[in-house]
Design a protein around this nucleic acid. Structure first.
Lengths: 247, 247
DNA sequence: TAACATGGTTTCACTGGATGAAACAAAAGT
DNA sequence: ACTTTTGTTTCATCCAGTGAAACCATGTTA
Protein backbone atom coordinates (compact mmCIF):
# COMPACT_ATOMS: atom_id res chain seq x y z
CA UNK A 1 0.00 0.00 0.00
CA UNK A 2 2.96 2.27 -0.55
CA UNK A 3 1.82 5.30 -2.54
CA UNK A 4 4.27 7.10 -4.74
CA UNK A 5 4.71 10.63 -3.47
CA UNK A 6 5.47 13.20 -6.11
CA UNK A 7 3.93 16.07 -4.23
CA UNK A 8 5.44 18.82 -2.15
CA UNK A 9 4.68 18.52 1.54
CA UNK A 10 4.85 22.19 2.44
CA UNK A 11 2.44 23.05 -0.35
CA UNK A 12 0.12 20.22 0.62
CA UNK A 13 -0.03 21.58 4.13
CA UNK A 14 -0.57 25.14 2.98
CA UNK A 15 -3.48 24.06 0.81
CA UNK A 16 -4.95 22.13 3.72
CA UNK A 17 -4.76 25.32 5.73
CA UNK A 18 -6.45 27.19 2.92
CA UNK A 19 -9.20 24.59 2.66
CA UNK A 20 -10.07 25.22 6.29
CA UNK A 21 -11.81 28.32 5.02
CA UNK A 22 -14.17 26.22 2.92
CA UNK A 23 -16.25 25.76 6.03
CA UNK A 24 -16.84 28.69 8.27
CA UNK A 25 -15.49 32.13 7.79
CA UNK A 26 -12.78 33.16 10.18
CA UNK A 27 -10.18 31.17 12.01
CA UNK A 28 -7.46 31.94 14.51
CA UNK A 29 -3.93 30.62 14.13
CA UNK A 30 -4.12 28.04 16.92
CA UNK A 31 -7.56 27.00 15.78
CA UNK A 32 -6.23 26.19 12.32
CA UNK A 33 -3.16 24.50 13.72
CA UNK A 34 -5.45 22.21 15.68
CA UNK A 35 -7.62 21.46 12.68
CA UNK A 36 -4.83 20.48 10.33
CA UNK A 37 -2.73 18.92 13.06
CA UNK A 38 0.38 21.00 12.63
CA UNK A 39 2.58 23.10 14.86
CA UNK A 40 1.66 26.68 15.56
CA UNK A 41 4.88 27.99 14.14
CA UNK A 42 4.50 25.95 10.97
CA UNK A 43 0.97 27.17 10.38
CA UNK A 44 2.13 30.68 11.16
CA UNK A 45 4.65 30.55 8.35
CA UNK A 46 2.20 28.99 5.95
CA UNK A 47 -0.40 31.62 6.75
CA UNK A 48 2.16 34.38 6.35
CA UNK A 49 2.90 33.04 2.88
CA UNK A 50 -0.77 32.75 2.00
CA UNK A 51 -1.31 36.27 3.27
CA UNK A 52 1.61 37.58 1.28
CA UNK A 53 0.05 36.23 -1.91
CA UNK A 54 -3.36 37.58 -0.99
CA UNK A 55 -5.08 34.26 -0.38
CA UNK A 56 -5.92 35.17 3.20
CA UNK A 57 -6.25 38.45 5.06
CA UNK A 58 -6.47 39.31 8.68
CA UNK A 59 -9.50 41.04 10.02
CA UNK A 60 -8.30 44.19 11.70
CA UNK A 61 -10.28 44.05 14.91
CA UNK A 62 -9.52 40.50 16.01
CA UNK A 63 -6.43 38.79 14.69
CA UNK A 64 -8.28 36.06 12.89
CA UNK A 65 -7.74 35.08 9.28
CA UNK A 66 -10.23 35.32 6.40
CA UNK A 67 -10.07 34.40 2.74
CA UNK A 68 -8.32 37.06 0.67
CA UNK A 69 -9.00 38.68 -2.63
CA UNK A 70 -6.76 36.41 -4.67
CA UNK A 71 -9.45 33.79 -4.30
CA UNK A 72 -11.92 36.21 -5.83
CA UNK A 73 -9.49 36.87 -8.63
CA UNK A 74 -9.20 33.18 -9.38
CA UNK A 75 -12.89 32.47 -9.08
CA UNK A 76 -13.55 35.13 -11.69
CA UNK A 77 -11.66 32.96 -14.18
CA UNK A 78 -13.19 29.70 -13.07
CA UNK A 79 -15.90 29.36 -15.64
CA UNK A 80 -15.52 29.62 -19.34
CA UNK A 81 -18.42 30.46 -21.58
CA UNK A 82 -18.71 26.79 -22.53
CA UNK A 83 -18.91 25.73 -18.90
CA UNK A 84 -21.99 23.66 -17.98
CA UNK A 85 -22.64 25.84 -14.94
CA UNK A 86 -23.01 28.82 -17.25
CA UNK A 87 -24.65 27.27 -20.29
CA UNK A 88 -27.27 25.34 -18.36
CA UNK A 89 -28.29 28.17 -16.04
CA UNK A 90 -31.23 29.36 -18.20
CA UNK A 91 -32.63 25.83 -18.44
CA UNK A 92 -32.26 25.45 -14.69
CA UNK A 93 -34.25 28.63 -14.16
CA UNK A 94 -36.92 27.31 -16.51
CA UNK A 95 -37.23 24.14 -14.48
CA UNK A 96 -37.30 26.08 -11.22
CA UNK A 97 -40.18 28.18 -12.55
CA UNK A 98 -41.95 25.05 -13.70
CA UNK A 99 -41.66 23.08 -10.44
CA UNK A 100 -41.18 25.94 -7.96
CA UNK A 101 -38.44 24.06 -6.14
CA UNK A 102 -34.70 24.58 -5.81
CA UNK A 103 -32.59 23.20 -8.68
CA UNK A 104 -28.99 22.04 -8.27
CA UNK A 105 -26.33 20.86 -10.68
CA UNK A 106 -23.72 18.39 -9.42
CA UNK A 107 -20.55 16.91 -10.87
CA UNK A 108 -18.45 14.13 -9.47
CA UNK A 109 -14.97 15.03 -8.24
CA UNK A 110 -13.06 11.90 -7.26
CA UNK A 111 -15.02 10.31 -4.44
CA UNK A 112 -17.18 13.35 -3.76
CA UNK A 113 -19.70 15.49 -5.55
CA UNK A 114 -19.64 19.25 -5.94
CA UNK A 115 -22.59 21.54 -6.50
CA UNK A 116 -21.42 23.65 -9.42
CA UNK A 117 -24.62 25.60 -9.94
CA UNK A 118 -27.91 26.27 -8.13
CA UNK A 119 -31.06 28.30 -8.56
CA UNK A 120 -33.28 28.77 -5.54
CA UNK A 121 -36.98 28.16 -5.20
CA UNK A 122 -38.92 31.33 -4.50
CA UNK A 123 -41.23 29.78 -1.96
CA UNK A 124 -41.17 30.84 1.68
CA UNK A 125 -40.14 27.37 2.80
CA UNK A 126 -37.43 26.17 0.47
CA UNK A 127 -34.23 24.23 0.11
CA UNK A 128 -31.30 26.67 0.09
CA UNK A 129 -28.43 25.37 -2.01
CA UNK A 130 -25.04 27.07 -2.05
CA UNK A 131 -22.78 26.77 -5.06
CA UNK A 132 -19.44 25.12 -4.40
CA UNK A 133 -20.65 22.81 -1.65
CA UNK A 134 -18.76 19.52 -1.52
CA UNK A 135 -20.83 16.53 -0.44
CA UNK A 136 -20.38 12.77 -0.02
CA UNK A 137 -21.21 10.45 -2.89
CA UNK A 138 -22.80 7.89 -0.62
CA UNK A 139 -26.11 9.59 0.12
CA UNK A 140 -28.55 11.78 -1.79
CA UNK A 141 -30.39 11.39 -5.07
CA UNK A 142 -27.74 13.06 -7.20
CA UNK A 143 -25.00 10.95 -5.62
CA UNK A 144 -26.77 7.84 -6.75
CA UNK A 145 -27.21 9.28 -10.24
CA UNK A 146 -23.55 10.24 -10.48
CA UNK A 147 -22.55 6.71 -9.54
CA UNK A 148 -25.23 4.76 -11.34
CA UNK A 149 -24.63 6.28 -14.76
CA UNK A 150 -20.88 6.72 -14.46
CA UNK A 151 -18.37 4.95 -16.67
CA UNK A 152 -17.86 1.33 -15.63
CA UNK A 153 -15.20 1.05 -12.97
CA UNK A 154 -16.08 4.29 -11.29
CA UNK A 155 -18.41 2.61 -8.82
CA UNK A 156 -15.75 0.30 -7.54
CA UNK A 157 -13.21 3.09 -7.47
CA UNK A 158 -15.39 5.36 -5.38
CA UNK A 159 -16.50 2.62 -3.00
CA UNK A 160 -12.86 1.68 -2.47
CA UNK A 161 -12.09 5.21 -1.30
CA UNK A 162 -11.18 5.48 2.39
CA UNK A 163 -13.93 8.08 2.76
CA UNK A 164 -16.60 5.58 1.82
CA UNK A 165 -18.74 4.60 4.83
CA UNK A 166 -17.79 1.08 5.84
CA UNK A 167 -21.19 0.16 7.23
CA UNK A 168 -22.87 0.68 3.85
CA UNK A 169 -23.62 -2.68 2.25
CA UNK A 170 -22.00 -2.50 -1.16
CA UNK A 171 -24.00 -5.29 -2.68
CA UNK A 172 -27.35 -3.77 -1.79
CA UNK A 173 -26.17 -0.34 -2.83
CA UNK A 174 -25.00 -1.66 -6.18
CA UNK A 175 -28.39 -3.27 -6.71
CA UNK A 176 -30.05 0.06 -5.92
CA UNK A 177 -27.85 1.74 -8.52
CA UNK A 178 -28.86 -0.82 -11.15
CA UNK A 179 -32.51 -0.09 -10.41
CA UNK A 180 -31.80 3.60 -10.90
CA UNK A 181 -30.22 2.95 -14.28
CA UNK A 182 -33.35 1.06 -15.25
CA UNK A 183 -35.66 3.82 -13.99
CA UNK A 184 -33.60 6.66 -15.45
CA UNK A 185 -33.71 8.76 -12.29
CA UNK A 186 -33.13 8.60 -8.55
CA UNK A 187 -34.91 9.92 -5.49
CA UNK A 188 -33.89 10.46 -1.89
CA UNK A 189 -36.18 11.08 1.04
CA UNK A 190 -34.63 12.53 4.19
CA UNK A 191 -31.50 10.63 3.30
CA UNK A 192 -28.77 13.13 3.97
CA UNK A 193 -30.64 15.90 5.70
CA UNK A 194 -33.77 15.36 7.75
CA UNK A 195 -36.75 17.21 6.32
CA UNK A 196 -35.31 17.36 2.81
CA UNK A 197 -36.00 15.28 -0.28
CA UNK A 198 -34.75 15.29 -3.87
CA UNK A 199 -35.17 13.84 -7.35
CA UNK A 200 -32.24 13.64 -9.71
CA UNK A 201 -31.61 12.75 -13.33
CA UNK A 202 -28.40 12.32 -15.33
CA UNK A 203 -27.15 14.73 -17.98
CA UNK A 204 -25.18 13.15 -20.80
CA UNK A 205 -23.18 14.99 -23.41
CA UNK A 206 -23.48 14.34 -27.12
CA UNK A 207 -21.12 11.39 -26.96
CA UNK A 208 -23.21 9.79 -24.24
CA UNK A 209 -20.83 10.44 -21.38
CA UNK A 210 -22.25 11.42 -17.98
CA UNK A 211 -21.28 14.98 -17.19
CA UNK A 212 -23.56 16.07 -14.36
CA UNK A 213 -26.61 15.31 -12.27
CA UNK A 214 -29.58 17.63 -12.29
CA UNK A 215 -31.59 17.59 -9.12
CA UNK A 216 -34.73 19.12 -7.70
CA UNK A 217 -34.83 19.40 -3.95
CA UNK A 218 -37.21 20.76 -1.35
CA UNK A 219 -38.86 20.11 1.99
CA UNK A 220 -39.93 16.50 2.41
CA UNK A 221 -43.54 17.37 3.15
CA UNK A 222 -43.88 18.95 -0.30
CA UNK A 223 -41.63 16.48 -2.10
CA UNK A 224 -43.40 13.32 -0.96
CA UNK A 225 -42.38 10.07 -2.64
CA UNK A 226 -45.51 10.21 -4.81
CA UNK A 227 -44.90 13.80 -5.79
CA UNK A 228 -41.29 13.07 -6.67
CA UNK A 229 -42.28 10.36 -9.09
CA UNK A 230 -44.73 12.77 -10.68
CA UNK A 231 -41.89 15.26 -11.09
CA UNK A 232 -39.53 12.71 -12.62
CA UNK A 233 -40.58 12.99 -16.28
CA UNK A 234 -40.19 16.78 -16.29
CA UNK A 235 -36.74 16.48 -14.74
CA UNK A 236 -35.62 13.77 -17.11
CA UNK A 237 -36.81 15.83 -20.04
CA UNK A 238 -35.02 18.93 -18.79
CA UNK A 239 -31.84 16.91 -18.24
CA UNK A 240 -32.11 15.56 -21.75
CA UNK A 241 -32.56 19.02 -23.22
CA UNK A 242 -29.55 20.22 -21.26
CA UNK A 243 -27.51 17.39 -22.69
CA UNK A 244 -28.19 18.56 -26.22
CA UNK A 245 -26.95 22.04 -25.30
CA UNK A 246 -23.53 20.72 -24.28
CA UNK A 247 -20.74 20.21 -26.79
CA UNK B 1 17.15 46.62 2.02
CA UNK B 2 17.24 43.11 3.44
CA UNK B 3 13.68 41.95 3.94
CA UNK B 4 12.91 39.49 6.69
CA UNK B 5 11.63 36.26 5.20
CA UNK B 6 9.14 34.38 7.30
CA UNK B 7 7.46 32.75 4.35
CA UNK B 8 7.77 29.30 2.85
CA UNK B 9 9.41 29.27 -0.54
CA UNK B 10 7.76 26.16 -1.94
CA UNK B 11 4.34 27.50 -1.02
CA UNK B 12 5.14 30.90 -2.47
CA UNK B 13 6.04 29.26 -5.75
CA UNK B 14 2.96 27.07 -5.75
CA UNK B 15 0.73 30.09 -5.24
CA UNK B 16 2.52 31.90 -8.05
CA UNK B 17 1.72 28.95 -10.25
CA UNK B 18 -1.88 29.07 -9.13
CA UNK B 19 -2.09 32.79 -9.82
CA UNK B 20 -1.15 32.15 -13.42
CA UNK B 21 -4.73 31.06 -13.86
CA UNK B 22 -5.97 34.51 -12.90
CA UNK B 23 -5.38 35.52 -16.49
CA UNK B 24 -6.37 33.17 -19.21
CA UNK B 25 -7.86 29.80 -18.78
CA UNK B 26 -5.59 26.91 -19.60
CA UNK B 27 -1.86 26.50 -19.43
CA UNK B 28 0.60 23.78 -20.25
CA UNK B 29 3.35 22.74 -17.87
CA UNK B 30 6.23 24.31 -19.76
CA UNK B 31 4.17 27.41 -20.40
CA UNK B 32 3.70 27.89 -16.66
CA UNK B 33 7.31 27.06 -15.91
CA UNK B 34 8.32 29.83 -18.28
CA UNK B 35 5.91 32.31 -16.74
CA UNK B 36 6.97 31.83 -13.15
CA UNK B 37 10.62 31.24 -14.06
CA UNK B 38 11.03 27.84 -12.49
CA UNK B 39 12.28 24.47 -13.63
CA UNK B 40 9.91 22.12 -15.38
CA UNK B 41 10.33 19.41 -12.79
CA UNK B 42 9.67 21.83 -9.95
CA UNK B 43 6.49 23.12 -11.52
CA UNK B 44 5.50 19.56 -12.28
CA UNK B 45 5.63 18.67 -8.60
CA UNK B 46 3.85 21.83 -7.55
CA UNK B 47 1.08 21.23 -10.08
CA UNK B 48 0.77 17.62 -8.95
CA UNK B 49 0.23 18.89 -5.43
CA UNK B 50 -2.27 21.51 -6.52
CA UNK B 51 -4.08 18.88 -8.54
CA UNK B 52 -4.13 16.49 -5.62
CA UNK B 53 -5.91 19.08 -3.51
CA UNK B 54 -8.32 19.95 -6.30
CA UNK B 55 -7.03 23.44 -7.04
CA UNK B 56 -6.25 22.56 -10.64
CA UNK B 57 -7.48 19.86 -12.99
CA UNK B 58 -6.26 18.61 -16.31
CA UNK B 59 -8.47 18.86 -19.30
CA UNK B 60 -8.72 15.38 -20.71
CA UNK B 61 -8.20 16.08 -24.39
CA UNK B 62 -5.04 18.15 -24.23
CA UNK B 63 -2.80 17.84 -21.19
CA UNK B 64 -3.23 21.44 -20.12
CA UNK B 65 -4.17 22.55 -16.65
CA UNK B 66 -7.31 24.41 -15.55
CA UNK B 67 -8.54 25.74 -12.22
CA UNK B 68 -10.18 23.05 -10.12
CA UNK B 69 -13.28 22.87 -8.01
CA UNK B 70 -11.56 23.64 -4.73
CA UNK B 71 -11.41 27.23 -5.92
CA UNK B 72 -15.17 27.18 -6.37
CA UNK B 73 -15.53 25.72 -2.90
CA UNK B 74 -13.49 28.53 -1.41
CA UNK B 75 -15.14 31.26 -3.41
CA UNK B 76 -18.51 30.13 -2.06
CA UNK B 77 -17.32 31.15 1.40
CA UNK B 78 -15.72 34.37 0.29
CA UNK B 79 -18.44 36.78 1.18
CA UNK B 80 -20.24 37.02 4.46
CA UNK B 81 -23.63 38.59 4.76
CA UNK B 82 -22.02 41.74 6.12
CA UNK B 83 -19.67 41.99 3.17
CA UNK B 84 -19.80 45.29 1.27
CA UNK B 85 -20.01 43.47 -2.05
CA UNK B 86 -23.22 41.84 -0.88
CA UNK B 87 -24.80 44.58 1.19
CA UNK B 88 -24.24 47.31 -1.35
CA UNK B 89 -25.43 45.37 -4.37
CA UNK B 90 -29.03 46.65 -4.25
CA UNK B 91 -27.85 50.25 -4.04
CA UNK B 92 -25.51 49.65 -6.95
CA UNK B 93 -28.40 48.34 -9.02
CA UNK B 94 -30.41 51.42 -8.11
CA UNK B 95 -27.63 53.66 -9.34
CA UNK B 96 -27.23 51.62 -12.50
CA UNK B 97 -30.92 52.03 -13.24
CA UNK B 98 -30.67 55.73 -12.53
CA UNK B 99 -27.66 56.45 -14.75
CA UNK B 100 -27.87 53.50 -17.18
CA UNK B 101 -24.14 52.94 -16.98
CA UNK B 102 -21.99 50.17 -15.51
CA UNK B 103 -21.30 50.46 -11.77
CA UNK B 104 -18.18 49.06 -10.08
CA UNK B 105 -17.04 48.77 -6.50
CA UNK B 106 -13.32 48.81 -5.77
CA UNK B 107 -11.21 48.25 -2.71
CA UNK B 108 -7.51 48.84 -2.28
CA UNK B 109 -5.33 45.79 -1.75
CA UNK B 110 -1.75 46.81 -1.01
CA UNK B 111 -0.55 48.70 -4.06
CA UNK B 112 -3.39 47.61 -6.32
CA UNK B 113 -7.13 47.84 -6.49
CA UNK B 114 -9.60 45.00 -6.87
CA UNK B 115 -13.10 45.17 -8.31
CA UNK B 116 -15.13 43.36 -5.68
CA UNK B 117 -18.53 43.94 -7.23
CA UNK B 118 -20.04 45.12 -10.49
CA UNK B 119 -23.43 45.59 -12.10
CA UNK B 120 -23.56 46.03 -15.83
CA UNK B 121 -25.28 48.71 -17.85
CA UNK B 122 -28.04 47.36 -20.03
CA UNK B 123 -27.23 49.52 -23.03
CA UNK B 124 -26.03 47.98 -26.27
CA UNK B 125 -22.70 49.80 -26.03
CA UNK B 126 -21.49 49.48 -22.46
CA UNK B 127 -18.53 49.05 -20.21
CA UNK B 128 -18.23 45.40 -19.20
CA UNK B 129 -16.74 45.02 -15.74
CA UNK B 130 -15.70 41.62 -14.37
CA UNK B 131 -15.67 41.00 -10.65
CA UNK B 132 -12.28 40.07 -9.22
CA UNK B 133 -10.23 42.09 -11.67
CA UNK B 134 -7.00 43.43 -10.21
CA UNK B 135 -5.89 46.81 -11.56
CA UNK B 136 -3.12 49.32 -10.95
CA UNK B 137 -3.64 52.15 -8.48
CA UNK B 138 -1.91 54.67 -10.68
CA UNK B 139 -4.61 55.25 -13.29
CA UNK B 140 -8.37 55.45 -13.33
CA UNK B 141 -10.92 57.45 -11.40
CA UNK B 142 -11.39 54.95 -8.60
CA UNK B 143 -7.64 54.59 -8.16
CA UNK B 144 -7.38 58.27 -7.46
CA UNK B 145 -10.28 58.08 -5.02
CA UNK B 146 -8.76 55.14 -3.19
CA UNK B 147 -5.51 57.05 -2.79
CA UNK B 148 -6.86 60.54 -2.20
CA UNK B 149 -9.14 59.64 0.67
CA UNK B 150 -6.97 56.92 2.19
CA UNK B 151 -5.45 57.15 5.65
CA UNK B 152 -2.41 59.41 5.76
CA UNK B 153 0.72 57.49 4.89
CA UNK B 154 -0.96 55.23 2.38
CA UNK B 155 -0.12 57.52 -0.52
CA UNK B 156 3.56 57.40 0.19
CA UNK B 157 3.46 53.70 0.83
CA UNK B 158 1.80 52.92 -2.48
CA UNK B 159 3.98 55.25 -4.48
CA UNK B 160 7.06 53.64 -2.95
CA UNK B 161 5.96 50.24 -4.23
CA UNK B 162 8.19 48.79 -6.95
CA UNK B 163 5.12 48.40 -9.16
CA UNK B 164 4.55 52.15 -9.19
CA UNK B 165 5.33 53.67 -12.62
CA UNK B 166 8.57 55.58 -12.29
CA UNK B 167 7.75 58.13 -14.97
CA UNK B 168 4.71 59.38 -13.05
CA UNK B 169 5.49 62.73 -11.41
CA UNK B 170 4.66 62.20 -7.76
CA UNK B 171 4.41 65.86 -6.95
CA UNK B 172 1.86 66.60 -9.67
CA UNK B 173 -0.03 63.42 -8.88
CA UNK B 174 -0.21 64.35 -5.19
CA UNK B 175 -1.54 67.76 -6.11
CA UNK B 176 -4.21 66.11 -8.25
CA UNK B 177 -5.20 63.92 -5.31
CA UNK B 178 -5.57 66.99 -3.09
CA UNK B 179 -7.87 68.56 -5.66
CA UNK B 180 -9.94 65.37 -5.62
CA UNK B 181 -10.26 65.52 -1.85
CA UNK B 182 -11.51 69.08 -2.21
CA UNK B 183 -13.98 68.16 -4.95
CA UNK B 184 -15.19 64.99 -3.27
CA UNK B 185 -14.95 62.87 -6.41
CA UNK B 186 -12.63 61.95 -9.25
CA UNK B 187 -12.97 61.47 -12.99
CA UNK B 188 -10.90 59.76 -15.62
CA UNK B 189 -11.19 60.16 -19.37
CA UNK B 190 -9.55 57.52 -21.54
CA UNK B 191 -6.92 57.20 -18.86
CA UNK B 192 -6.45 53.48 -18.54
CA UNK B 193 -8.42 52.21 -21.49
CA UNK B 194 -8.98 54.17 -24.67
CA UNK B 195 -12.65 54.82 -25.33
CA UNK B 196 -13.60 54.48 -21.66
CA UNK B 197 -14.32 57.07 -18.98
CA UNK B 198 -15.36 56.95 -15.33
CA UNK B 199 -16.48 58.97 -12.34
CA UNK B 200 -15.75 57.73 -8.84
CA UNK B 201 -16.65 58.72 -5.28
CA UNK B 202 -15.43 57.43 -1.90
CA UNK B 203 -17.48 55.29 0.48
CA UNK B 204 -16.70 55.84 4.15
CA UNK B 205 -17.94 53.63 6.96
CA UNK B 206 -19.58 55.05 10.10
CA UNK B 207 -16.26 55.81 11.71
CA UNK B 208 -15.17 57.83 8.70
CA UNK B 209 -12.70 55.32 7.32
CA UNK B 210 -12.45 54.83 3.56
CA UNK B 211 -13.64 51.33 2.67
CA UNK B 212 -14.28 51.39 -1.06
CA UNK B 213 -14.62 53.46 -4.20
CA UNK B 214 -17.87 53.53 -6.11
CA UNK B 215 -17.48 54.21 -9.78
CA UNK B 216 -19.62 54.72 -12.85
CA UNK B 217 -17.98 53.88 -16.14
CA UNK B 218 -18.95 53.82 -19.76
CA UNK B 219 -17.89 54.73 -23.28
CA UNK B 220 -16.12 58.07 -23.45
CA UNK B 221 -18.49 59.48 -26.05
CA UNK B 222 -21.38 59.12 -23.62
CA UNK B 223 -19.40 59.96 -20.48
CA UNK B 224 -17.98 63.24 -21.70
CA UNK B 225 -16.21 65.42 -19.12
CA UNK B 226 -19.29 67.65 -18.89
CA UNK B 227 -21.60 64.72 -18.46
CA UNK B 228 -19.41 63.21 -15.78
CA UNK B 229 -19.57 66.34 -13.68
CA UNK B 230 -23.34 66.29 -14.04
CA UNK B 231 -23.33 62.71 -12.77
CA UNK B 232 -21.10 63.48 -9.81
CA UNK B 233 -23.76 64.60 -7.29
CA UNK B 234 -25.83 61.47 -7.82
CA UNK B 235 -22.78 59.27 -7.38
CA UNK B 236 -21.64 61.10 -4.27
CA UNK B 237 -25.08 60.80 -2.79
CA UNK B 238 -25.26 57.08 -3.58
CA UNK B 239 -21.82 56.56 -2.06
CA UNK B 240 -22.91 58.43 1.04
CA UNK B 241 -26.04 56.32 1.38
CA UNK B 242 -23.95 53.18 1.00
CA UNK B 243 -21.70 54.36 3.78
CA UNK B 244 -24.60 54.54 6.18
CA UNK B 245 -25.52 50.95 5.34
CA UNK B 246 -22.12 49.65 6.41
CA UNK B 247 -21.34 48.80 10.03
C1' DT C 1 -2.16 44.23 41.25
C1' DA C 2 -0.20 40.13 40.62
C1' DA C 3 -0.67 35.61 38.73
C1' DC C 4 -2.41 33.15 35.12
C1' DA C 5 -4.10 31.91 30.67
C1' DT C 6 -4.40 32.51 25.84
C1' DG C 7 -3.19 33.57 21.35
C1' DG C 8 0.36 35.26 18.19
C1' DT C 9 5.49 35.89 17.04
C1' DT C 10 10.44 34.94 16.90
C1' DT C 11 14.60 32.24 17.31
C1' DC C 12 17.51 28.37 16.21
C1' DA C 13 19.83 23.77 15.45
C1' DC C 14 18.94 19.82 12.79
C1' DT C 15 18.04 17.11 9.04
C1' DG C 16 14.65 15.54 5.79
C1' DG C 17 12.60 17.11 2.00
C1' DA C 18 12.62 20.24 -1.92
C1' DT C 19 15.44 21.18 -5.76
C1' DG C 20 17.29 21.25 -10.68
C1' DA C 21 20.18 18.86 -13.93
C1' DA C 22 19.89 15.40 -16.80
C1' DA C 23 18.05 11.40 -18.68
C1' DC C 24 13.76 9.29 -20.35
C1' DA C 25 9.21 8.66 -22.68
C1' DA C 26 5.72 9.88 -25.68
C1' DA C 27 3.48 12.49 -28.75
C1' DA C 28 3.24 15.92 -32.58
C1' DG C 29 5.00 18.11 -36.24
C1' DT C 30 8.38 18.12 -40.50
C1' DA D 1 12.63 8.66 -40.60
C1' DC D 2 14.17 12.56 -38.05
C1' DT D 3 13.43 16.49 -35.22
C1' DT D 4 10.99 19.15 -31.93
C1' DT D 5 8.13 19.72 -28.15
C1' DT D 6 6.03 18.53 -23.81
C1' DG D 7 5.37 15.74 -19.90
C1' DT D 8 7.56 12.41 -16.48
C1' DT D 9 11.07 10.11 -13.59
C1' DT D 10 15.45 9.64 -11.24
C1' DC D 11 18.92 11.07 -8.09
C1' DA D 12 22.80 13.42 -5.49
C1' DT D 13 23.25 17.72 -3.13
C1' DC D 14 22.39 20.85 0.30
C1' DC D 15 19.31 24.42 1.58
C1' DA D 16 15.01 25.43 3.25
C1' DG D 17 11.25 23.83 6.07
C1' DT D 18 10.53 22.09 10.49
C1' DG D 19 9.12 21.91 15.57
C1' DA D 20 10.59 22.76 20.26
C1' DA D 21 11.02 26.21 23.16
C1' DA D 22 11.28 30.85 24.42
C1' DC D 23 9.13 35.24 23.98
C1' DC D 24 5.64 38.88 23.83
C1' DA D 25 1.32 41.03 24.02
C1' DT D 26 -3.40 40.83 25.55
C1' DG D 27 -7.03 39.79 28.28
C1' DT D 28 -8.95 37.21 32.40
C1' DT D 29 -9.18 35.59 37.01
C1' DA D 30 -8.34 35.77 41.93
Amino acid sequence: MEEEKRTVRAVERALDVLLCFASGQEWGLTEIAGRVGLHKSTVFRLLATLEDKGFVTRVHTTDKYRLGLSVLELSANLSRSDDPSVVLLPEMERLRDQLSETISLYVRDRAERVRIQAVQSMQAIRRVATVGARLPLSVGASSKVLLAFADPGIRGLVMADPAWPAQLDRGAFGKQLDDIVAAGYATSYEEREPGAAAVSAPIFNRSGKLVAALSVSGPSNRLTPDRMHEFAPAIIEAAHRMGTILG
